Amino acid sequence: MASQGTKRSYEQMETDGERQNATEIRASVGKMIDGIGRFYIQMCTELKLSDYEGRLIQNSLTIERMVLSAFDERRNKYLEEHPSAGKDPKKTGGPIYKRVDRKWMRELVLYDKEEIRRIWRQANNGDDATAGLTHMMIWHSNLNDTTYQRTRALVRTGMDPRMCSLMQGSTLPRRSGAAGAAVKGVGTMVMELIRMIKRGINDRNFWRGENGRKTRSAYERMCNILKGKFQTAAQRAMMDQVRESRNPGNAEIEDLIFLARSALILRGSVAHKSCLPACVYGPAVASGYDFEKEGYSLVGIDPFKLLQNSQVYSLIRPNENPAHKSQLVWMACNSAAFEDLRVLSFIRGTKVSPRGKLSTRGVQIASNENMDAMESSTLELRSRYWAIRTRSGGNTNQQRASAGQISVQPAFSVQRNLPFDKPTIMAAFTGNTEGRTSDMRAEIIRMMEGAKPEEMSFQGRGVFELSDERAANPIVPSFDMSNEGSYFFGDNAEEYDN
């Protein structure tokens, strides 16, 4: 993207840094990872977990959730003011799984939030270390993106479920800051804005008074975040219109849905970061690795190297396929839920299948599930090659597409044709070009129609051997075009429920 120079890199967003050079960025990201790792080690000690239990991804998720809940100030305040039966607002906890007599047992633990905050700050040299908290939120978000298709949420806001490739980060909490905003897809931002506008339509006082002023500035800020994701002048001009509207209503909703559809071809720039579970960072720190000293990046080879040398386990339900569970977590670790499966298959070195073909449910185990038949197995999170994460949407291309997802959002900077089903997408653009945004709409449609099938995206960008740390010898991959490109292809993934 041309304006790259004016933006802070995501590592800076990730670490609240002012302008830093590459070495400083690597050190501050490393410091953040160190903090998460030290916190995780301490929690495993508190909970008396064995090494194996500490490497269980379900335990990692519970521990991450506990610290996120302990620092969720708004919710904590709300819980104190609106006490609900049987919930102690000062405590947080969740299921911890232990191996007892050759069987997995679930144990519900409860801790004072104050105590968890103390352990977290102690692991982070006394700081609140917001960057580390956001990092864990993005890992949870990436896992949700890989596990669930947001059909219901899309339909509720009037969008087409086939636009799911635009929904990265749709389950990120509001408090995820600049680093969170960077990884949100165009569809996620559109959905947040539509929800806001709908509230304004239904509630006369939404934009009024002292609160209304705050609401208005939040609305304009979200519009600017979305505008910054678009790469064409016409899309940005249309966002200006939406932002400046005196009284946002149905016309703005129409414009936003139009823009979301246009992003299936004229893709937005959305950041991709490899955020790993805390149970990967903990053992690495415990083994003596100093992330701050060595430096770390979320968008280069580092996460690949770390996963190459990590042992992570997962509980497996009786009829689940461990290899499929591994694929789910591998995609989440690489922030690749909406990437082209052919690119992923090449990088991973084994075939990556669409969601609907995987015999696996989510990673988390519900409290009512029976533990008797639970097994555990090693997650295979290694890769054959590594590639640089991208934040450009890439230019655009036609490809055989599917009944489910009709476009992709690249996660890796790797040369390819970008699949999208042009006739299906263009069919949504018939007729409606009147109104105050008509010239911009016409211009956007013209650009979409001009998108050429034979153009290559990320020209000359390749993948790298894991021994090639400096990215000196790019390998331009070859793809098996007979395979499906979309992950949520004609899909039956479970729906995400809060």
Rank of each mutant, 00 (worst) to 15 (best):
M1S: 09
A2L: 00
G5F: 00
T6Y: 00
T6L: 00
T6H: 02
K7E: 11
R8N: 00
S9M: 14
Q12V: 05
Q12R: 15
Q12P: 00
Q12S: 15
T15Q: 05
T15M: 09
D16T: 13
N21P: 10
A22V: 15
R26G: 09
V29R: 07
K31R: 15
M32L: 03
D34V: 13
G35P: 03
G37D: 08
F39G: 01
Y40L: 05
Y40P: 03
I41A: 12
Q42T: 04
Q42C: 09
M43F: 10
M43R: 05
M43V: 13
T45C: 14
L49G: 04
L49Q: 09
E53F: 08
L56D: 07
S60N: 13
L61P: 02
L61K: 02
L61E: 10
L61C: 12
T62I: 02
I63R: 07
I63K: 06
E64G: 12
R65K: 14
M66A: 11
V67W: 06
A70D: 12
F71A: 10
E73D: 08
R75N: 08
R75A: 04
R75W: 10
R75D: 09
N76C: 09
K77V: 14
P83M: 11
S84C: 13
A85S: 12
G86P: 11
G86R: 12
D88V: 00
D88A: 00
P89G: 12
P89E: 01
K91F: 03
P95D: 08
P95A: 15
P95V: 09
V100C: 11
V100D: 02
D101Y: 05
D101M: 09
K103W: 01
R106Y: 09
R106A: 08
E107P: 02
E107N: 13
L110P: 11
L110D: 08
E114F: 15
I116Y: 01
R118K: 15
I119F: 08
Q122P: 03
N124V: 04
D128S: 14
T130W: 06
T130Y: 02
A131F: 02
G132E: 04
L133E: 04
L133W: 04
T134G: 02
H135V: 07
I138M: 13
T151V: 06
A153E: 07
V155C: 04
V155M: 07
R156I: 09
T157D: 03
P161V: 12
M163C: 14
C164W: 01
M167P: 02
S170R: 07
T171Q: 10
T171K: 04
L172A: 14
L172Q: 14
P173I: 02
R175C: 02
A178N: 14
A178S: 10
G180Y: 05
A181M: 14
V183D: 08
G185M: 04
M189R: 00
V190S: 14
K198R: 08
R199E: 07
G200R: 03
I201K: 04
N202F: 11
N205G: 12
N205I: 11
R208A: 03
E210H: 02
E210A: 02
E210I: 01
N211A: 14
R213S: 05
T215V: 14
R216N: 07
S217K: 03
Y219G: 01
Y219P: 01
R221C: 04
M222R: 01
C223I: 09
C223F: 10
I225P: 02
I225L: 15
L226S: 14
G228C: 13
K229G: 08
Q231D: 00
T232S: 12
T232F: 02
A237M: 15
A237P: 01
M238V: 07
D240N: 13
D240Q: 15
V242I: 13
N247L: 03
N247P: 06
P248A: 14
G249V: 08
A251E: 09
E254F: 13
I257Q: 04
F258M: 09
F258P: 04
R261P: 05
R261T: 05
R261S: 03
A263H: 02
L264F: 14
L266K: 14
L266M: 11
R267F: 02
R267S: 01
S269I: 10
C275Y: 06
L276C: 13
C279D: 08
C279A: 13
V285Y: 11
A286N: 12
S287A: 08
Y289I: 15
F291M: 09
E292S: 10
G295D: 13
S297Y: 08
L298Q: 07
G300V: 07
P303R: 06
F304C: 12
F304N: 10
L306H: 04
S310Q: 13
V312I: 15
I316Y: 10
P318C: 11
P322V: 11
A323K: 05
Q327H: 09
L328C: 02
L328I: 15
W330H: 05
M331S: 07
C333F: 06
S335M: 01
L341C: 11
R342Q: 15
R342F: 05
R342A: 14
V343G: 05
S345I: 11
I347P: 00
I347K: 06
I347C: 14
I347T: 08
R348H: 14
T350L: 12
K351M: 05
P354W: 00
L358P: 09
S359K: 15
S359I: 12
G362R: 07
Q364E: 03
N368W: 00
E369Y: 13
M371Y: 02
D372T: 10
A373R: 14
A373W: 10
A373V: 12
S376A: 14
E380M: 04
S383E: 01
S383A: 15
R384F: 12
A387L: 00
I388Y: 08
T390Q: 01
S392N: 08
S392L: 02
N395R: 15
N397Y: 00
N397S: 05
Q399L: 07
R400D: 02
G404E: 07
Q405C: 13
I406C: 14
I406F: 03
S407L: 09
V408F: 07
V408K: 03
Q409L: 00
Q409P: 00
P410C: 14
F412A: 01
S413R: 12
Q415C: 08
R416E: 09
P419C: 13
F420K: 00
K422F: 11
P423H: 12
T424K: 00
I425H: 00
I425Y: 02
A427V: 09
F429C: 13
F429K: 01
T430N: 14
T430D: 00
T430F: 00
G431H: 14
G431L: 14
G431E: 02
G431D: 00
N432P: 10
T433Q: 13
G435S: 06
G435P: 08
R436Q: 01
M440W: 13
M440N: 06
M440I: 06
I444F: 10
M448W: 03
K452L: 14
K452Y: 11
K452G: 09
P453N: 13
E454L: 15
M456I: 05
M456S: 13
G460Q: 06
G462N: 11
G462V: 02
G462M: 04
V463P: 00
E465M: 14
L466A: 05
S467P: 01
S467N: 09
R470A: 05
R470W: 07
A472R: 08
A472T: 15
P474G: 00
V476Q: 07
S482Y: 03
S482A: 00
N483M: 13
N483A: 01
Y487R: 02
F488K: 01
F489L: 07
D491C: 11
N492Y: 04
N498D: 00
N498L: 02
